[in-house]
């Protein structure tokens, strides 16, 4: 997998599988979740936003873990493809983080009576997560030298990754002292299977969809980095060479 050329051809053949299976699962999950799942006994139909909210929040964390893992691999084993994966994943992760915040805020309006609730630790630590993504992209954008940008931003990601548990813990501790309105919680772990299966389908479907987007973006990044290599020229220009 570490050879750019090999990665490129594998990714090209994987993308349709990821995309099609992801879209099928997402459509199935959405139809079942929005029309066939029973309304929540406390929240009514408003709970249905979890079918977008939970997958986005999951992807936002999964993407950062993936970036941290790739940064680790890239710094220790000096595998260049890992840098391209980080570049591909960052804007996607930031976007899903933003979606999670947006849907969480829209959900909060009918549930808590406010768009933004500082008393919810998940909301506030998700906001800090968005800041970490933005910091990475800002650092990346201001370093013109590619090799330097790769290594320095990988260090930043690792520093962020080891601090995420601490940030989350301190936000949680802070909100436990914070006197907010009592939060409504969904019916506990005993979630109805008619609600659960569409949610699982959405989570897996969104992950596959994210995977296909990640591969498309990483492919483009690899091609950009390898634009002077023979295989890339041959593939792009074909017979003209």
């Amino acid at each position: 997998m570490s050879s750019p050329r090999y990665f490129y051809s594998i990714a090209t053949s994987l993308i349709p599988w990821f995309l099609v299976s992801g879209l099928i699962l997402m459509v199935a999950g959405l139809i079942n979740g929005l029309f066939y799942a029973p309304p929540d006994y406390q929240q009514g139909d408003a709970f249905r936003i979890i079918y977008v909210h939970v997958p986005s929040a999951y992807i936002s964390m999964m993407a950062y873990s993936l970036m941290a893992f790739a940064a680790f691999v890239a710094l220790i084993w000096r595998i260049k493809i890992a840098h391209a994966v980080i570049v591909g994943a960052a804007p996607l992760g930031a976007w899903f983080t933003f979606l999670a915040l947006l849907t969480g805020s829209i959900w909060g309006r009918p549930m808590w009576g406010t768009w933004w609730e500082w008393g919810d630790p998940r909301l506030t630590s998700e906001l800090l997560m968005l800041f970490l993504y933005l910091g990475y992209m800002a650092l990346r954008a201001s370093l013109p030298n590619l090799a330097q940008a790769d290594k320095l931003s990988a260090i930043l990601i690792l520093i962020g990754a080891i601090n995420i548990p601490i940030i989350h813990f301190s936000v949680e501790w802070w909100t436990s002292l914070h006197q907010g309105p009592t939060l409504l919680k969904a019916g506990g772990p005993a979630i109805d299977s008619l609600m659960l299966y569409p949610l699982l389908a959405m989570i897996i479907g969104t992950t596959l969809y994210f995977g296909s987007l990640l591969l498309v973006r990483t492919k483009a990044e690899v091609l950009n980095r390898e634009k002077n290599s023979r295989w890339a020229k041959k593939m792009l220009l074909g017979d003209q060479l």
């Binding site: 800041f131 910091g135 930043l156 520093i159 601090n163 940030i167």
Partner: peptide, 10 residues
């Protein structure tokens, strides 16, 4: 500031 502020929040 953008890089270190989120880490300084705790």
């Amino acid at each position: 500031s953008l890089l270190v502020l989120p880490i300084m929040i705790p």
